[in-house]
Write a protein that binds this DNA or RNA. Structure first.
Length: 521
RNA sequence: GGCGGCGUAGCUCAGUGGUAGAGCAGGGGAAUCAUAAUCCCUUGGUCGGGGGUUCAAAUCCCUCCGCCGCUACCA
């Protein structure tokens, strides 16, 4: 059995869940569901990133210790998953014991090994730079301005001072060639291709060593053997991906089955951490890099950049409440080519849910199933010999599986949907062309064949769309009387059994009508 | 500044040398099984500007204009 390991980033608990988090998680979920459907052994991981100075500070501000604080706020993210219909297999928190053990193990593994150039991977040095206390951030010399008072200031206007602190460094500078070779030999390792090019050109510029410990705060995982230091949050955070599959027990069944990860799904803002640092950390520790890192784009809201200060943050729960879960899942996966930025607008959302879902797919189901209920004895009809028109529809429906499989293998979520909805459109044309309402009077046997072909097409559409819209497609398959154990790719060619009794049809996708609209004048 | 990408119908985009395409939106019609849904036809573009190569350019080359991404240690 093939395995498939997909991860979302672990979400930083200091953030409030927004559409970006939901989007990443949903993309992972669609992949996870499709791969399970397609017979893979799947592990879908998500979780929360809970260490770092900002979290410690937020906890202090709330008057609680950091652990109690993160116990609480990590729930914001955990609770979002069922609301989104996510089928994650685990939820990891970086404050868990298993994770501390894993981080310390990868640190030791890195420290024990040499770089490709024969140097130690980790060495103790000093991290120095222009630090703004107010911003809690370091700045590059080039970013600073010198005021009339002679003081250097950050772009934010905060005063900066030169500080030095002891720090362990990861000798990233020795890993550049290895990374470039990895990109070259594994063209699918980073996607979309534009991101791979960006990352490669970044590496080509030459890499500096990376500070991987801090001494200025202590809310983190202790560096083995030097407890004054806590690990750099990104080393801590990225390591979650192996913790969850059993690291440091590399001989465990789970680790052997699922590592390396099939896809790390990330937002475009954190590509570098996943496509440069992470593979280098892993290689330094003697572990395999992930098979693929894929960066998706960002959403705007009604054409505007989303920001807290603009107050136009899109809350996933609100969206689901307004439009429905499966509608939102569909919209996010369909509206924008995955990998590119996209715009959310209520008009576009409503257009998609009414046009694609209610009118095309929902109405197709309704017109076919209610016709069968009224005119074919509420049971699966018995088909006669197929004509060319029937074959054309059925063959195209049968071909969808391999198309969807190929598209999703490279995160082509929208293209996979394109292929399925092309068949839905064909099916609507077929209904009109065959006009079963006429056949009812002239040729009942032919009518039965047409209805059967339509139901078979709906069955396959329903099977494939389960990954995107699990709830609604379960209803569709129920209405087609597809048995629960015949809803995966293994049952792709197991056609509906004539004579099977059918339940009363019900609408799948209600049209969305805006308040004040909908009453005829 | 450097590197990379993009600019095609009202909107979102596909199309990388051979008579301009899709979806949605707009207009007209057909049908009546269905969630007034569906189906057919149709309006609409000097393919960012200019120059060049070629029998032929949205597609290759040059140049200009505009937009975007990356250009390292908050996460």
């Amino acid at each position: 059995m093939k395995s498939f390991y997909v991860t979302s980033p672990i979400y930083y608990v200091n953030d409030v869940p927004h559409i970006g988090h939901a989007y990443t998680s949903l993309a992972c979920d669609v992949l996870a569901r499709f791969m399970r459907f397609d017979g893979h052994r799947v592990f879908f991981l998500t979780g929360t990133d809970e260490h770092g100075q900002k979290v410690a500070k937020s906890a202090a501000a709330a008057g609680v210790d950091p652990q109690a604080f993160t116990d609480k706020v990590s729930q914001n993210f955990r609770a979002l998953l069922p609301a989104l219909g996510c089928s994650n297999d685990d939820f990891i928190r970086t404050t868990e014991k298993r994770h501390a053990a894993s981080c310390q193990a990868i640190w030791k593994a890195m420290a024990a090994r040499k770089t490709p150039k024969g140097n130690d991977n980790i060495y103790l040095g000093a991290y120095s730079g222009w630090y703004a206390v107010r911003d809690e951030a370091y700045y590059e010399e080039s970013e600073l301005t010198t005021g009339p008072d002679g003081k250097k200031r950050a772009p934010s206007g905060a005063e900066v001072e030169w500080v030095e602190e002891p720090s362990y460094f990861f000798r990233l500078s020795d890993w550049g060639d290895w990374l470039l070779e990895w990109y070259a030999k594994n063209p699918d390792a980073v996607g979309p291709a534009s991101r791979r090019n960006e990352v490669a050109s970044f590496v080509k510029q030459g890499l500096q060593d990376l500070s991987i410990s801090r001494t200025t705060f202590d809310w983190g995982i202790k560096v083995p053997g030097d407890e004054k230091h806590v690990m750099y949050v990104w080393l801590d955070a990225l390591t979650n991906y192996i913790t969850a599959v059993g690291y440091p027990d590399v001989d465990s069944e789970r680790f052997k089955i699922f590592w390396p990860a099939s896809v790390h799904m990330v937002g475009k803002d954190i590509v570098r951490f996943h496509a440069v640092y992470w593979p280098a950390f892993l290689a330094a520790a003697g572990l395999e890099p992930p098979r693929r890192v894929y960066a998706h784009g960002w959403w705007t809201n009604e054409g505007q950049k989303i920001s807290k200060s603009l107050g136009n943050v899109i809350e996933p729960n609100k969206l689901i409440e307004t439009y429905g879960l499966d509608q939102v899942r569909y919209f996010l996966m369909r509206e924008v080519p995955f990998g590119q930025d996209g715009d959310f607008s209520n008009a576009a959302m409503i257009r998609r849910m009414n046009t694609d879902l209610a009118n095309d797919l929902g109405n197709l189901g309704q017109r076919v199933l209610s016709f069968v209920a009224k005119n074919a004895g509420a049971a699966v009809p018995s088909p006669g010999a197929y004509l060319d028109a029937d074959r054309a529809l059925l063959d195209k429906a049968a071909a969808m599986l391999s198309i969807v499989r190929a598209e999703l293998a490279q995160q082509g979520f929208h293209k996979a949907l394109d292929a399925v909805f092309a068949v839905v459109a064909d099916a609507n044309r077929y209904v009109d062309a065959q006009a079963p309402w006429s056949l009812r009077k002239t040729d009942p046997a032919r009518m039965a064949t047409v209805l059967y072909a339509l139901m078979e097409t709906l069955r396959r559409v329903g099977l494939l769309l389960q990954a995107y819209m699990p709830g609604t497609m379960a209803k569709l398959l129920d209405q087609l009387a597809v048995p629960a154990d015949k809803r995966d790719a293994g049952a792709w060619d197991e056609a509906l059994v004539p004579g099977t009794a059918l339940p009363a049809p019900q609408g799948l996708f209600p049209r969305h009508v805006e308040a004040g609209e909908g009453t005829k004048k």
